[in-house]
Design a protein around this nucleic acid. Structure first.
Length: 293
DNA sequence: CTCCAGGGATGAT
DNA sequence: ATCATCCATGGA
């Protein structure tokens, strides 16, 4: 059942560790996880993927058809962007199931990536469906109907904290049919963002993540604490009154049609540079240790 | 131990 | 319109 899938210009580990998806776990030389309701084992060997399961499913999920070299060529040519670009080579924005992505990012507010991974796992283990692959258990992400049927107390037991109420409320809107996530695909970026922001626990940042990671709106530019730090330090050093609106206006025009990709590269580079090297203080100013070129 | 995290909703200016 | 505060949790 295992198949070889050509995967040039792709880095599986970087893609799965870049904070866009949270449930893949290392197993041997590869990863196990679920794509929708299918259990999958996937392993990178050079320019190919060794994958179990449906080849088309895997190729679509990891967006192996994205013209990555063209996308990267569209990035602005500046020092911060080029450093991130060389660090993140092969990182792709994957195509996630919409509800799974939405629900996960509703749970993401003020949580570190490691915490989000834990929340995702607990939700899956408690409310998802058990699948099996190569003798290993994999859990699907629970449907909106299943989450909607849970109590807030049960959800809080998954380490959700105050996010439990929003997840439950959003799940109820999706499960009841009041919101059809698939049908939102026809909307323009602005209308899709506005519609997503009507859901409890969804603001501009989460909406942009869902647009980028589940609706393939590669222009959507989520601004979290990491990206805001990068923008302030690298693009607006010593700038007064730099509010959210100003940052948003800048990112929308400066990073262009694949801004979401650029954002993900900047995010991953910044996060890896800090969590692995730990920055040092020198004479009262922050100096990043890992500078790539 | 403290610090802080892929924020959002609310109410005060 | 912008800004301050609160909201729970746990890895680092």
């Amino acid at each position: 059942m295992t198949k070889w899938i050509p995967a040039p210009d792709f880095d599986l580990a970087k893609t799965l560790d870049s904070g866009q998806v949270f449930h893949w776990e290392k197993l041997d030389a590869g990863f196990i996880g679920a794509i929708g309701d299918r259990p999958v084992y996937v392993e990178q060997r050079g320019e190919s993927l060794l994958a179990s399961g449906d080849e088309k499913l895997v190729r679509n999920y990891f967006a192996l058809d994205h013209p990555l070299s063209k996308i990267c060529a569209s990035f602005p040519d500046d020092a911060a962007m080029n450093a991130a670009l060389s660090f993140c080579r092969g990182l792709r924005i994957i195509r996630q199931p919409k509800w799974e992505c939405l629900a996960t990012f509703v749970c993401s507010s003020m949580k570190q990536v490691a915490h989000i991974r834990q929340i995702s796992r607990k939700l899956r283990e408690r409310f998802g469906e058990r699948r099996q692959i190569d003798g290993h258990a994999v859990f699907t992400f629970p449907s909106a109907e299943r989450i909607a049927a849970a109590s807030e107390k049960e959800l809080r037991e998954c380490a959700l904290g105050y996010r439990a109420k929003d997840l439950l409320a959003t799940a109820r809107q999706v499960a009841s049919g009041k919101v059809d996530l698939e049908k939102l695909s026809i909307l323009s970026d602005a209308d899709l963002r506005a519609r997503l922001c009507q859901l409890p626990g969804v603001g501009a940042k989460v909406a942009n993540c869902v647009m980028l990671f589940a609706y393939e709106r590669l222009r959507a530019f989520p601004i979290d604490v990491w990206i805001e730090r990068v923008l302030r330090e690298r693009y607006f050093p010593r700038a007064r009154k730099l509010n959210a609106g100003r940052l948003r206006a800048f990112t929308e025009k400066y990073f262009g049609g694949h801004g979401g990709y650029a954002q993900q590269y900047l995010f991953h580079h910044a996060r890896m540079g800090k969590t692995k090297n730990t920055r040092k203080r020198k004479s009262g100013r922050f100096v990043t240790v890992s500078r790539v070129k």
